[in-house]
Design a protein around this nucleic acid. Structure first.
Lengths: 332, 332
DNA sequence: TTGTAGGCGTTATCAT
DNA sequence: ATGATAACGCCTACAA
């Protein structure tokens, strides 16, 4: 840390006042006389003085800083929500520490502790599950934390109803006349991209009295490659599905490629739907039908909830469930 | 900031030693006797004590924190480089403040000042140009700063040779037999996506003795929509181009769609190339031929340069120019 | 309206 | 090997 050359004492000396007076004008207390104010401001200007936020934090016991823990900023889902968080944070004069956890428990805990040591005022956590250990730490350190995407215990959170969304999407496919609907899930250890999507799928199928064929359900990962492989498997089946529901847009992109490569026309011979509505979903050809998660809003609202908590603005509604929407495009 | 309940004094009391001793074990000084070490560790455990990094920073004059200023984390180019920065930062125990500037001069300056007040040890700056004002601030505050993507004065930087890359791409097209090559540039106020790409294009065309037709050069923005519009314009020309060089992948996606919608076959009737090699470039159909910028490496290396500077590890090579590469895929 | 002084939680110097 | 104590730069009673 380069020392910003001057401190409050230098300013005080130059302005011929005490440091408390300088402090007062910095934090514009109303009690200071206009002419002293001018004097001090002049000294500040001349010296190019900037208050030291670290020293200030030590005294006032807040840092105007929050930590955001996400799996991986380079994965297409997160940048948008981070942007939402940062916009609101900035609006309330907070800065954000960005931490990539790769969904690894060790890293999560490690970052959490570092954030605690660095005295962040609050934390935004994303990750499809919160472990017992993390929950315990949150309670132990008592750092205001809001969950985005996930939900856990009494913690404030902002989510969408993943099961309902998944079900809605399958219902839509059914309404379109599809009966042979395949599902490429996320990893089954993932309660959201894995089990929740599957649950919604099953619900919809059962309510429509459609048989759920095991070979129509394949476990993917969350990357393109895995969508590609799974779709290949699905499309080499004796009795091919007429629609594929991929648990994420990127997975869907993989499925689309398989179809394209094999001259299977979309949507005529095969419908493909994804989930998330990432930026590129509407920019590819054919444009992808998908469920839109309000990513930016999730971030923005999550951060808003956090600011409320930090300002102790009453016992807000702390479990927020946002609406999803079905974006119908060209793959169905 | 929730106060982590206990401080060094509490630990000292509990362990029956002085605070200096506690401080020594925290910073594992070798002079402390094994048995006192144990005693102190026990007290630390029992209390769940975590040192206060803010207090520490005030004393030692560094924060193990760096600021990263980028235009917009939700724009597809940046997440990958931020990940590179963060990985290396983390490796050296730094945390990063993420700041979205939207390339607005005001925001840039504002964030820079906030970072200075928060006493970051260094700054990573991305943005296609650095203003006089920013340069002045950097010098004034004397905060170690490295530029990624851009270059300016004596400041350390990591870049690629944009003109050469652009030229190489056009050369490639020419070698493929194209003569009617159109260019969708970025905004011309942007020295990189605008002028540098154009310069490379012109150079290649001239060296190949191809005429540069004004109507083949259209100014786009940096988003999909603008690629779409520009390509429409280009493809409604009397004398259509046989190849379109879009200054960014997203622009190229827009061009591809225009072709697809009009039944123009890619690459037979029209070749399309982009620039950057964003994650999705290889995942769409047809997969995009493009220039790969080593985004992750740019971030990682940039951060590495910064750590060198922070450790005063000699007067390194501070202007680093990375290699680009041409990724040939299906659109050519 | 302004100044004095104590303290925020550490580290580091100097004794012991 | 350990302990007292003075900083670090700021804020904030309390006094004047």
């Amino acid at each position: 840390m380069r020392v910003l050359k001057f401190n409050i004492k230098d300013v005080a000396k130059r302005a011929g006042v005490s440091i408390s007076t300088v402090s007062r004008v910095i934090n514009d207390s109303k009690v200071v006389r206009p002419e002293t104010h001018v004097k001090v401001m002049k000294a500040i200007e001349e010296l190019g003085y900037k208050p030291n936020a670290i020293a200030r934090s030590l005294k006032v016991k807040n840092t105007k800083t929050i930590g955001i823990l996400i799996p991986d900023i380079s994965y297409n889902f997160y940048p948008e929500v981070v942007r939402g968080v940062e916009d609101i944070a900035n609006m309330y004069s907070y800065n954000i520490f960005l931490c990539n956890t790769d969904m690894e428990e060790d890293k999560v805990i490690q970052y959490f502790e570092v954030m605690a040591e660095k005295q962040v005022d609050g934390i935004v956590f994303m990750g499809n599950m919160v472990s017992e250990e993390l929950a315990a730490k949150i309670k132990l350190y008592d750092i205001p934390t809001v969950l985005i995407g996930a939900d856990y215990g009494q913690l404030p959170s902002v989510t969408i109803d993943h099961v309902a969304a998944s079900k809605a999407l399958v219902n839509y496919l059914i309404k379109k006349g599809h009966e042979k609907i395949a599902l490429i899930t996320g990893k089954m250890v993932d309660p959201i991209v894995g089990t929740a999507r599957l649950a919604g799928y099953k619900k919809a199928m059962m309510e429509a009295n459609l048989t759920i064929k095991d070979e129509y359900i394949v476990e993917g990962g969350h990357r393109y490659k895995s969508g590609y492989v799974c779709a290949q498997q699905l499309l080499s089946l004796e009795d091919k599905p007429t629609a594929i529901f991929a648990a994420s847009d990127e997975l869907a992109f993989g499925a689309i490629r398989v179809a394209m490569e094999n001259g299977i026309s979309i949507p005529d011979e095969l419908a493909v739907v994804g989930f998330n509505n990432i930026d590129m979903a509407g920019k590819i050809f054919p444009a992808l039908t998908t469920i839109a998660q309000p990513m930016y809003e999730m971030g923005a609202i999550g951060m808003r909830v956090l600011t409320k908590i930090l300002n102790e603005d009453g016992p807000e509604q702390n479990k927020i469930v946002l609406d999803f929407s079905l974006i119908e495009r060209e793959t169905t």
